[in-house]
Design a protein around this nucleic acid. Structure first.
Lengths: 361, 361
DNA sequence: GTGAAAGCGCTAACAC
DNA sequence: GTGTTAGCGCTTTCAC
């Protein structure tokens, strides 16, 4: 039955509301007989505490908002899953309110400027377009932790993977495989995100460390962050004579598009072109050939983000903390492990603020 | 500033709470001068209405729960995206609380038996394991609409696609392409879901209509609903000598796994084996070859489900309504359109309770 | 160990 | 047009 109130239970059991409340919360100071009597009343009436009433009284809703561009992007749905599980296990057990920004500045503003306050206890936001200044100004006093390598004001907590280091590690792996012309695929043709920018920086760093050519022709941008656009862009590059034997992809979407473009032209992977993606999405294991990929430690990311958010909710008010979580380089058929690091878990490189492990899968 | 209350604004502006409330809600009956004065107070204090207070007073939270197995499954993340957009456009603008059941009966029970009531105004649930009787018993009086072809008590609203008809259409398309041994891939090895059951029924119906062999060897089950398991299962079937020239897959995950198993064995798609998946996930367009797929009309599904839910929330209390939305058969390289129905939108078949359109993509 | 009563912030009669 | 006031359902001091 709905509409059964705490007070109804109290009357039915012939006790005060406080006593019922004590029973509901398993408070120690209540006699066994009383507990029994009240519990019977609860069961008979089918009483269920009303969440909103409780929340008005306590000031906590138990809800946190998770905001990112689009849940259809595999990385984000993976993130939503991991965070939702971790959130349920955090403190009182948080639940997730899903907010999509569509990767637009309007969407990001809307998420931060919700006209109502107090619905959620805090927010996890992966921004991509908003400037760090605007984030700092708009978030008001909503407890917040930023996800990812996007803009982040010093005043706000943030968790990310070292994208530069990871891109360097991926590029160096291709170099170690003997690749001499390594291209980068999948950054936005216009309005490049900080994600793409950092990955390209790391890619260049990797090339330079091995004395490989850094060439604008080897930067293959796409119209949108989709595998279709990547397939088109890589196909066009090949058709206009751009040659490469290794491909660092902005993400697995781009990598899957690249796979398709290469297949269409009967280019063998990894013999002719080795490919590394990013995010290690579930499909990476079943593409043909299977895809090597940079795998951010999303478990750690969720854990760290939620811990920091819980501290903020609890009242912590210090300067923003910026944390870095580690990543793996998961090596599959499209860019296999070197013979010498063939064993799963073989250490490939140790990079600043997190280690890159090469894992053969 | 947080902690600014309606009352603070009223005092600051020297008016009553009611007047402030009128301004906040853009009520007509308030003079321009008054509106101006109050608005200034709101801006000066940075007042934002508190959602929980409002919700306690109105009894509505503006939240609906969306519960399904796992947001990482592409079909569900697509659904979450479509429903979240449609929900924002429904009535007062609903937001989504994400709940994952992990496809287990415990998970489904947990979602329905949340110990607190009143947090959400209603629920959209895609059940897979729970019996219809248990659903009917447990949902209490929470406004609810069921999604998908799982168990559904007559007392509860439900929206689905006609899975039998769609599977028949897919199978018949393969028959029309001249395929003579059409297998089904991807149902659970044990504990088969009603989804798989219905799709297999439609598959059998399609075979029988064309006098094609119905053979237990042609039912290739998998351990889990993943593309990896499908790749293993299809590979094993091929290796033990099962032969087929067409494949109806339970979903695109299974289809992508099948693609991989076929590629590994140098079997040509669609020449040797034509493949049709289900759900028309984004990747279907960029696999190699691209994947033909049954495309449920998720837009319509979201629209119908939310409309029914809104009616339930508004108090509608009639018997459960079971609605069927249509689907398309999107034809790509893995099982191309017939020459005669080559034109996009060419009508393939008209099936009960929804039309199947063949669309070449 | 149990009860009474004062809020939490907002809405909506109802009165002015 | 604007103000007063009684809740919405729960928690939580503070008496008893």
């Amino acid at each position: 039955m709905a509409g059964v109130r705490l007070q109804d239970v109290a009357e039915h059991a012939g006790v005060s509301m406080k006593t019922v409340s004590n029973v509901v919360h398993s408070h120690p100071n209540v006699s066994a007989a009383m507990r029994e009597r009240v519990q019977r009343a609860i069961d008979e009436l089918g009483y269920r505490p009303n969440a909103i009433g409780r929340r008005l009284a306590t000031g906590r809703t138990g809800l946190i908002a998770l905001a990112f561009a689009d849940v259809r992007l595999p990385y984000f749905s993976e993130l939503a899953n991991v965070i939702s599980k971790a959130a349920a296990a955090t403190g009182p057990g948080y639940r997730l309110l899903l907010e999509e920004t569509e990767g637009t500045i309007e969407g990001e503003r809307a998420v931060l400027s919700a006209s109502e306050a107090g619905l959620v206890d805090g927010m996890l936001l992966q921004p991509s377009r908003m400037s760090s200044r605007e984030i700092a100004e708009r978030h008001g006093d909503l407890p917040m932790v930023l996800l990812g390598e996007g803009p982040a004001p010093l005043s706000v907590d943030r968790v990310m993977v070292d994208n530069v280091a990871a891109a360097t590690a991926a590029t160096e792996h291709l170099a170690a495989l003997g690749r001499e012309r390594v291209a980068f695929v999948g950054h936005e043709r216009s309005g490049m995100s900080s994600t793409s920018r950092q990955r390209i920086m790391g890619y260049q760093e990797g090339l330079e460390r091995h004395g490989l050519p850094v060439d604008h022709d080897l930067l293959i941008s796409t119209g949108a962050i989709t595998s279709q656009d990547a397939a088109i862009a890589v196909g066009a590059a090949l058709d206009r004579g751009v040659r490469f034997d290794g491909l660092v992809c902005r993400d697995d979407l781009a990598a899957i598009g690249a796979l398709r473009a290469l297949h269409e032209r009967d280019i063998s992977i990894p013999d002719d072109v080795a490919v590394i993606g990013w995010d290690n999405i579930a499909f990476a294991a079943t593409t043909f050939p299977s895809l090597s990929s940079v795998a951010p430690n999303t478990q750690a990311l969720a854990r760290v983000a939620l811990d920091m958010l819980a501290e903020r909710i609890a009242g912590f008010d210090g300067i923003g903390r910026h944390r870095v979580v580690d990543f793996d380089l998961v090596l599959r058929e499209s860019a296999p492990a070197l013979a010498s690091t063939d064993a799963p878990g073989g250490e490939l490189a140790s990079v600043h603020a997190g280690s890159a492990h090469a894992i053969s899968a």
